[in-house]
Design a protein around this nucleic acid. Structure first.
Length: 728
DNA sequence: AAAGAATGGCTTTTT
DNA sequence: GCCATTCTTT
């Protein structure tokens, strides 16, 4: 077979039995190795049924599956899945052994935080001292580390605060169980629990005889245990990863899993892939130099035969707006020389930084796509509909029930709900069961009793309907009978987009197909819980990509801008305070960012910028000093004189403020650039015509008739209203 | 119960 | 500066 692989890749592909660890540097063809190895196993007679390949994202799983299927006819019969979906598969078969229903619900982070909040209150803990977010994260850490409630009590002995969190952990687990719900962490840790039963373990060890793990550096303790238990018998584990790209330590990823692989699998073969097929040597030299400062790593040096290429461009901007301006100018000029929009990516450390950049793109008219932000299934309206579906699938799911009991409004208020919850917890029954017994709750008001009765009747109706109909028919019925769409409709632009989302979700239920009944509903919900990729990366779209450094992992672009290359931002101030380990992770993030670039890399920083509502000044990133001078040059830009960010005028009548430390009011010493009758553009509302301009306070109130959303009154400077076809 | 005002908080977010 | 959450008001 002619695979066109380099010798190291080839060796990894041919390795069949026994543990194998592949250190795959950025751009070294790791997916290629993984897929070819699978194809090779199949070709040498391994049954596809015995192969398991595990990834972290659905996207990676899909890609791998596609690529294996091209190489081998039997490719798509292998199980290629994310950790979570592989574990859910096992749990659907085995979880009854742990006392859970097979129809368990999956709680996302929002659901579990709500439950934790309830739990904290129920334990009479002050939310100020035990913020649900913090409690959630402590509990999550324990689960990732496979630390049980009992063990956590032991660890916490003597620390009353931790002991209280242990109380919360205990009650939370108890509540999850009565709700037949698993959070994301449970999906892994409960699978490990079930694999501790010898006959179960044996079954899956025989089933999965060859195991491949992608992005091994990102595995947490529970995931590691899952994999090593499965591989325990035959030791046929092939882990592929790059310790230098471990950037999810804060989510429990344990870099020791990759660095100590040899200790855990003593006969492991180790192969390093250091030839990079992506970037110029200059970019790799910069990346190597930066990450080479890390102590805790396995030494490797990326090289490429693509030649030196251009030097890295370092640009010092006056402020964040000038920084954005530099990006726009540079991209525009490259576009005129034949570059495509999709060649460019803008990477930033924090999501908050996207705004300034996005504003500049909106103004410039360059097509862009912003990655991240609120995911589709996390949108309020989608979560509401999902809550309806979830409660029908698993009526014990009190979190979903509570979410929609009064949405749309049906006059079941907070007080009635707390009475129900009290009744339920006193009797250790579910919220839904309590609702069914509403007649016997003495404290309940007459009207509420009637409303709750109606609501229960409606849900029962839905449940009956769900047994014999498709998911999309069910959704239709729910929308219809609850009046959900009308509830959303309030004439705003936002409502319109929510309704569009509902429509999109409805399409999704239709795509799911014609299968009918409770299993169909369960499967649909599972898919939705574990697949977050609906508004996904459109491969063909010719747009600039804007995203965080974290979400850029695994992607590549001809030209990459890393913005906000400043101390306190990147590295973030938290990582500077957090000790060597945190800082090294930050440095790896820098390595990830740099190695996204194929041809050109731009690092930009600003003399001052708006941050948390204040103007701040940061020194250039300490990572900059780790790049030898020979690899970069400083850029100069002929720039137009930007109007200064106005100061002080608004405050003339009020007490004077120090412009350097205080909030900056909207400027009024600026003139409007448009008059009545002009066409203008608004970030959210799009284009429209100016009907009226009224000077008011620090800004101008402008009445605009928008093409899409009708007449609105807008504060001109505040909302950055601008002439429609304004260039730069 | 809903709308409006005040408060606080704030890295990163594969599932 | 922006957002989500909580508090206050009607």
């Amino acid at each position: 077979m002619d695979y066109n692989l380099n010798p190291n890749q080839y060796e990894a592909v041919l390795h069949k039995e026994g543990p194998l660890l592949v250190f795959a540097g950025a751009g070294s063809g790791k997916t290629r190795v993984l897929t070819h190895r699978m194809a090779h196993l199949l070709e040498s007679g391994v049954n596809p049924y015995n192969i398991l390949a595990i990834t972290f994202t659905n996207k990676a799983a899909r890609e791998m599956k596609e690529r294996v299927s091209i190489l081998s006819q039997e490719g798509d019969r292998c199980l290629v899945a994310t950790f979570h979906s592989a574990c859910v598969r096992i749990l659907r078969r085995e979880i009854e052994r742990l006392g859970y229903s097979t129809r368990f619900s999956i709680f996302d982070a929002t659901d579990s935080e709500r439950l934790i909040k309830d739990v904290v209150n129920e334990l009479n803990l002050d939310e100020k001292f035990y913020p649900p977010k913090l409690v959630a994260s402590v509990i999550s850490t324990q689960k990732n580390e496979l630390i049980s409630v009992d063990e956590f009590y032991q660890i916490s002995a003597g620390d009353f605060r931790m002991t209280h969190i242990a109380d919360a952990y205990e009650l939370y687990q108890q509540r999850l169980k009565t709700m037949h719900a698993l959070d994301f962490d449970d999906i892994i840790s409960r699978t490990v629990e079930v694999l501790e039963i010898p006959e179960v373990l044996e079954f899956y060890q025989n089933r999965f005889q060859y195991i491949m793990v992608d992005e091994y550096q990102d595995t947490n303790t529970a995931q590691y245990r899952f994999v090593s238990m499965l591989a325990g018998k035959r030791q046929n584990i092939c882990a592929v990863g790059d310790d230098d790209q471990s950037i999810y330590g804060w989510r429990g990823a344990n870099i020791k899993n990759i660095l100590n692989f040899q200790k855990d699998f003593p006969n492991a073969r180790i192969i390093k892939l250091e030839q990079n097929y992506r970037s110029t040597q200059t970019i790799l030299d910069a990346a190597n130099n930066v990450v080479g400062n890390n102590i805790n790593r396995s030494e490797k040096i990326l090289w490429s035969d693509k030649g030196k290429g251009d030097k890295i461009t370092v640009y010092m901007a006056d402020d964040d707006r000038d920084e954005a301006n530099f990006i726009i100018k540079t991209i525009k000029s490259k576009i005129t020389k034949g570059a495509k929009h999709s060649d460019f990516a803008i990477l930033y450390r924090t999501t908050a930084q996207s705004r300034t950049v996005e504003d500049a793109f909106v103004m410039s008219g360059i097509p862009y796509r912003l990655y991240g932000g609120t995911r589709f299934y996390e949108r309020m309206e989608i979560k509401d509909i999902l809550a309806y579906l979830k409660i029908l699938d698993n009526p014990a799911d009190g979190i979903s029930l509570e979410r929609i009991v009064n949405v749309p409004r049906r006059k079941i208020g907070d007080i009635s709900i707390s009475r129900l919850k009290l009744y339920a917890s006193e009797r250790n029954i579910s919220l839904f069961e309590a609702m069914q017994e509403v007649e016997s709750i003495e404290t309940m008001g007459k009207s509420a009793t009637a409303q709750i009765g109606n609501f229960v009747q409606m849900l029962r109706n839905f449940i009956d309907f769900s047994l014999e109909n498709t998911v999309s028919a069910l959704m239709n019925k729910i929308l219809d009978e609850t009046g959900y769409i009308e509830y959303l409709q309030d004439g705003t632009f936002e409502a319109e987009s929510r309704i569009e989302n509902i429509q999109e979700f409805y399409n999704k239920t239709q795509e799911f197909g014609e299968s009918v009944g409770e299993d169909a509903l369960s499967m649909f919900l599972e898919e939705v819980a574990l697949v977050s990729d609906i508004d996904n990366y459109e491969e063909g779209a010719d747009t600039v990509s804007l995203m965080t450094l974290h979400s850029s992992k695994g992607l590549e672009f001809e030209e990459v801008f890393i913005v906000g290359f400043e101390e306190n931002i990147f590295p973030s101030y938290r990582s500077l305070e957090g000790g060597a380990e945190k800082f090294e992770e930050e440095r790896r993030l820098c390595y990830v960012g740099i190695t996204r670039a194929k041809q050109s890399l731009y690092l930009t920083h600003a003399r001052q910028r708006m941050y948390h509502g204040k103007i701040i000044s940061n020194a250039i990133s300490s990572f900059f000093k780790e790049i030898p001078e020979e690899f970069y040059e400083l850029a100069h830009l002929k720039k137009p004189i930007l109007s200064p960010r106005g100061v002080a005028k608004l405050n003339r009548d009020k007490k004077p403020i120090n412009p350097y430390i205080n909030k900056i009011p909207a400027p009024t010493d600026k003139e409007l650039t448009f008059v009545v009758g002009d066409r203008v553009k608004h970030l959210k509302y799009g284009a429209g015509e100016v009907l009226e301009i009224t000077p008011g306070g620090a800004d101008y109130e402008v009445t605009v008739k928008f093409d899409r959303v009708g007449v609105k009154k807008i504060m001109a400077f505040f909302s950055k209203l601008a002439l429609e076809n304004k260039q730069d």
